[in-house]
Nucleic acid binder design. Structure first.
Lengths: 196, 196, 196, 196
DNA sequence: GATGAATGAGCGTTCATTCAT
DNA sequence: CATGAATGAACGCTCATTCAT
């Protein structure tokens, strides 16, 4: 299936170009022609791979979401207790986002879009799953009594942890002096309960 | 004698309408006419009070930023040590944002805009000040040795705290089952060091 | 009738302001508000004296046309033969236009408007009368054989003379180094037949 | 393979349509849609060939100016003395303008625009060159003493000659009974010095 | 497939004019 | 009379999308 591979690869190329342009100009400020130029193809050709401009934004987020879900899955297979796994999660996610500056920027537009059109991409579901995975690890050892009883209910704790990650990404986008990668450890120290 | 109008009040009315529309449709999806209709005036009249659509977005954020800065200032005058003051800050900010759903939604568009056009509104400066105020309270008692030495440097701690707030707001926007107001206490418990 | 006088005077004030603005910004680029500001009154007040923006342009030209027609009438009463009278006409007209830079500039807009809407102001009639007056003087002495037979028919001669005046005004408007007043004598020398 | 279009030719078609519309309705009264309709294309397509409405006006004048400059250059190569050459110039220019009624009408708008925005199109320069070419021919034979000493300085003489041409065009535009082509000879007789 | 010329709905903004005070 | 806030029709220009080649 050589055609299939080519098609998918070309689609990916265009998507990468789109993300660069979205990151630079914002979704609202990105013309199809800008994306085509960035991808080195003609304007009309974009429509051979994407049905609309919005579809590209969705695809960009899908990529990030897929990688995040993979991470979430990995976490469940990670050796160690809940805390080890959460540390792994936080570090992995922060590394991912620190490396994907462009995608992070685009995330802002996706957020804005997702708030308005809940049917467009299931943002609520994404973050719900995210929190659920964190919650699972936070409560992992509980039934064995090996974790100190937390004053904070695990779901709220998870929300705060997830929120801290997203909120740090946000600040890093605004202010280059905020080093996103370096914030993994503080988040871990402050929000991941010590093992045992 | 011309018609008597309180320019500032009228401007505020329009701004409120604009925020409602921005919240509902997103900045990019809000036509001037929508805003005018929401405000109960004619399209052209909007331009008697705002120079452009973007100016309304900026004004919306300015309002929120001003109230936030007030809060920050109040914090400095609040009785008690750094921890008390931080508790006050977190609770106040969360209450403010919980009450201002529309403004929070609009915040997403402002973020998106602010990342791209750093000269438009000084987002970096806003969050820098925000973090600085938090940092100040985190280090308030330190020189007297009354606070437990923190494993996390105060600036990073502040970033995480501010991030947690913003990140919780974000999740609450996506998912109505996330109760923003109820997250104040978890944030306090997890991220504000206990007094003494 | 004091009110009457005031009203007329006020109208004239506004018209003068309008001419200044038209000259500076062009008719198309002159907003009613600009004119009102120049006249030191409120926007709405303009409409107490003029029915529309276009009416002001017409009035501006009317003023110039009236003064031109006066000149034409004076010419007929001027002592001397046709040539003397033409010299007087050319010098007077050139002096008038040289003094009224603003009106000359506005003339360009009036021309542009007048070509398109013949019913608006009778431009054709104005120039016809103008040429007729010149023609009359060119042929003044002819029937007595006191003028040298001209190789050029008087109507064409008049057209060229009138054209030269307007064309010189035009060049002076474009190029400040063209001294309109100084062109009266050359026009006289070249286009007014010597007496006898 | 994209549709094959001769960009320059298409641009010219649109320009011709624009000139027709400008001539009929005036620049200020010509909507882009009118021009598009006249050209038989869609509104947006106009912008594939012109960046703005004003650019079309400039292009219209550029065309006329280019042809005029060609004429000026031809004059310098024309056989005969200065007077022969000037006769050739006057006749050629008058023929050109008589044939291009629409462009002449548009000229009125260009004048109006050019007076206000000297940087837009170098009207002053155009007429300066025009006068310079005429002046050159007026003084052509002087140093050999073959021309009768003129009472009028050549630069003023040139200004009057150029002015007469433009002024006759103007009158012809207002009044159909003025036959522009027929005015070439009167201008020659009156303003071009006889040979020798 | 690829192209890019063409389309035309759509929108931000302007401004002449009106009219309540 | 004077004012200037309000109006809303109008228009220049953009750009996502289509489709003939």
């Amino acid at each position: 299936m050589p055609k299939q591979v080519d098609r998918a690869a070309r689609r990916e190329e265009i998507l990468t170009a789109a993300v660069r342009v979205f990151a630079r100009q914002g979704y609202g400020g990105s013309r199809i022609e800008d994306i085509a130029r960035e991808a080195g193809i003609a304007k009309g050709s974009v429509y051979l791979y994407f049905g609309s401009r919005e579809e590209m934004l969705a695809a960009a987020f899908d990529g990030l979401a897929a990688r995040s879900r993979e991470l979430l899955a990995e976490v469940g297979r990670h050796p160690g207790g809940g805390s080890e796994r959460l540390r792994f999660l936080v570090r992995s996610v922060m590394r991912l986002l620190a490396q994907e500056r462009d995608l992070s920027r685009v995330l802002l537009d996706v957020w804005s879009m997702g708030v308005r059109e809940p049917d467009w991409i299931d943002m609520a579901g994404f973050y719900r799953d995210y929190r659920a995975a964190v919650t699972a690890q936070l409560t992992a050892g509980e039934r064995h009594g090996t974790e100190v009883a937390d004053a904070v209910d695990p779901v709220s704790h998870a929300t705060v942890l997830v929120g801290a990650i997203e909120g740090c990404v946000l600040q890093a986008l605004f202010d280059p002096s905020v080093d996103l990668a370096a914030l993994a450890e503080p988040i871990v120290s402050l929000l991941v309960p010590p093992s045992r």
